[in-house]
Computed example of a mutant assay.
Amino acid sequence: MRYSDTDRIYDELLLTRIQAGDRRAGERLAARWYPRLMRTACRLLRDEEQARAAVQEAWSGICKGWRGLRDPSRFPAWAYTILHRKCADQIGKNQKNRSLHIVAAETMETSVAPRGEDKVTIDQAFDRLSDDHRTAALLYFGEGLTIKEIAEVTGTAIGTAKSRLFHARQQLKAALNDEPIEGE
């Protein structure tokens, strides 16, 4: 689901109301954003429990900081930046403890039921991407963020974000067309 201009405007309105003290607006924003953040975290971490924990931590940080966000139009990039940091922290922990990573991967494989051959093929193509390329592709294709917002979320230059998205596109296209991928 792409992030439309209408969605952006509505989220800006909700954030403005939150900053004015409207608790219900916060609940509405949480209801709108939790599924999006969860979807992105699941794809980055490849483990539902770790993703849920990362989203909870990210949402806690978002709630603590949203009153200080001066430009409500920056909310999507700001929220994904917080989530990206939480997921990166978890990936770092997983890399330090390989046995935990293996158990999490096995759990994810058995707990996620494929929803059609195309979904499986696309998921496998995304799984073959590097973490950086996967993040760029997920934020662009899955969440509708701009190159500038992706650069902000990942803490990279715009050129780096463009390059990562370009390479992710090439690799996804090759994987989905059953072509050999460079470097394999």
Rank of each mutant, 00 (worst) to 15 (best):
M1R: 09
R2W: 01
S4R: 10
D5A: 15
R8L: 15
Y10C: 02
D11G: 01
L15G: 06
R17T: 01
Q19W: 09
A20L: 10
A20T: 04
A20D: 09
D22N: 10
D22R: 02
A25F: 11
A25L: 10
G26I: 05
G26F: 05
G26T: 07
E27K: 03
L29T: 03
A30G: 01
A30C: 04
A31Y: 00
A31R: 08
R32M: 10
W33I: 01
P35E: 09
P35G: 07
T40D: 00
A41D: 03
L45M: 10
R46P: 03
R46A: 14
D47E: 13
D47H: 15
E49Y: 13
E49K: 14
Q50Y: 06
A51M: 07
A53E: 15
A53N: 13
A54I: 11
A54C: 12
V55R: 10
A58F: 12
W59M: 15
W59H: 07
S60C: 13
I62M: 12
K64T: 06
R67W: 03
P72W: 08
P72L: 05
S73N: 05
P76V: 07
A77H: 05
W78S: 03
Y80I: 06
I82W: 09
I82P: 09
R85F: 06
R85V: 06
R85K: 12
R85S: 10
R85L: 07
K86F: 02
K86G: 01
K86S: 06
A88K: 14
D89M: 00
D89W: 00
D89P: 00
Q90V: 10
K93Q: 08
N94A: 14
Q95G: 02
R98F: 07
V103K: 11
M108G: 08
E109Q: 14
T110V: 12
S111E: 14
S111C: 08
A113D: 04
A113N: 07
P114V: 14
G116P: 14
E117R: 04
K119P: 00
T121Q: 07
T121V: 04
T121F: 03
L129E: 08
L129R: 04
S130W: 01
D131E: 06
D131F: 11
D132W: 10
R134M: 15
R134S: 12
T135L: 02
A136F: 09
A136Y: 12
L138P: 01
Y140E: 07
G142I: 13
E143Q: 15
T146C: 00
T146N: 03
E149T: 03
E149S: 08
I150N: 10
E152I: 10
T154F: 00
G155Y: 10
T156R: 15
A157F: 08
R164Y: 13
L165Y: 14
F166G: 07
R169A: 08
R169G: 07
L172Y: 02
N177Q: 08
D178E: 14
E179N: 11
I181A: 12
E182N: 06
E184K: 11
E184Y: 11
